Simulated scan of single mutants.
Amino acid sequence: MTQFLAEEFKNAFSADHIIMFVRLIGAAIFGGLIGFEREIHRHPAGLRTHILVSMAAALFVLVAIEVPEIMRSDRDVLRVDPTRVVQSITEGVAFLAAGIVFLQKGTVKGLTTGAGLWFSGAIGLTIGLGLWSLGIFASMLGLVVLFVLRRLEINTNLSKRKSLSDEAQE
């Protein structure tokens, strides 16, 4: 029994596994950046949710990358289509994100948070594949969209309200 366990874990901390661990940490960090913006604005899916979605996407793609290696003795039987893994992750995260969106008093709520979850999944998938520069750039661009464009929306809405108020007083 001990020998079986030793065999099972002998390569658990190989260079390949360390790379996978670092990719999971990267997915947590960069997916978490999107969640941080949602958190500070008190939206339902915040920091922890975005981190978990991003890490889950990265983990799914890492497992998909490793399946051919694990099953190398069954090469004739095993066919891996990486696009199916991407499709499955996309659908799963989209389903989760759709659950955030709701209608309240005739107004759609949670749409940006749902999109943020979907985006965090994409970041996790990208970093899980080892496409670091793309994942980091996408994260930074996502933060620009969330922070900078939020300010623009707030300023635009304030301008509209002021002009409507001015018209009502005339």
Results as ranks from 00 to 15, higher is better:
Glu170Val: 13
Gly32Thr: 03
Glu8Ile: 15
Leu111Asp: 05
Arg151Asn: 14
Glu39Tyr: 03
Ile100Gln: 06
Thr126Met: 07
Ile70Glu: 13
Met20Ile: 08
Gly135Thr: 04
Val67Glu: 08
Val61Pro: 00
Gly32Phe: 01
Ala45Leu: 02
Ile127Ala: 02
Val144Glu: 01
Glu153Gly: 10
Arg161His: 10
Phe21Gln: 12
Thr49Gly: 04
Gly46Trp: 02
Leu96Met: 11
Ile154Arg: 14
Ser120Cys: 06
Leu125Gly: 04
Ile40His: 06
Phe30Cys: 07
Leu117Ile: 05
Lys162His: 12
Lys160Phe: 12
Ile18Gly: 13
Val63Leu: 13
Leu33Ala: 05
Ser163Phe: 15
Ala94Ile: 07
Gln87Trp: 08
Glu167Met: 14
Met140His: 07
Lys162Pro: 03
Glu69Tyr: 14
Val61Met: 08
Leu52Tyr: 10
Gly26Val: 01
Ala97Glu: 06
Ala138Val: 10
Leu125Ala: 09
Gly128Cys: 00
Gln169Phe: 07
Val53Ser: 01
Gln104Ile: 00
Gly35Ala: 01
Ile89Pro: 03
Glu91Leu: 13
Ala64Pro: 04
Gln104Asp: 10
Ile70Thr: 15
Ile25Pro: 08
Leu24Ile: 07
Met71Ile: 08
Leu5His: 11
Ala57Tyr: 00
Leu149Asn: 12
Leu134Cys: 09
Ala115Asp: 10
Glu170Cys: 11
Gly106His: 04
Leu47Asp: 06
His43Phe: 02
Asp81Gly: 09
Met71Ser: 12
Gly106Asp: 06
Val101Leu: 08
Arg79Lys: 13
Glu91Cys: 11
Glu37Arg: 06
Lys10Ser: 15
Gly121Arg: 01
Val22Cys: 09
Pro82Asn: 11
Glu167Pro: 00
Leu111Thr: 02
Gly106Thr: 01
Ser165Trp: 11
Gln169Arg: 14
Thr156Cys: 09
Leu24Gln: 05
Gln87Val: 07
Val63Asn: 07
Phe147Ile: 10
Leu96Thr: 05
Ala56Leu: 08
Gly110Arg: 02
Ala98Glu: 02
Leu52Val: 12
Ala58Thr: 01
Ile29Val: 15
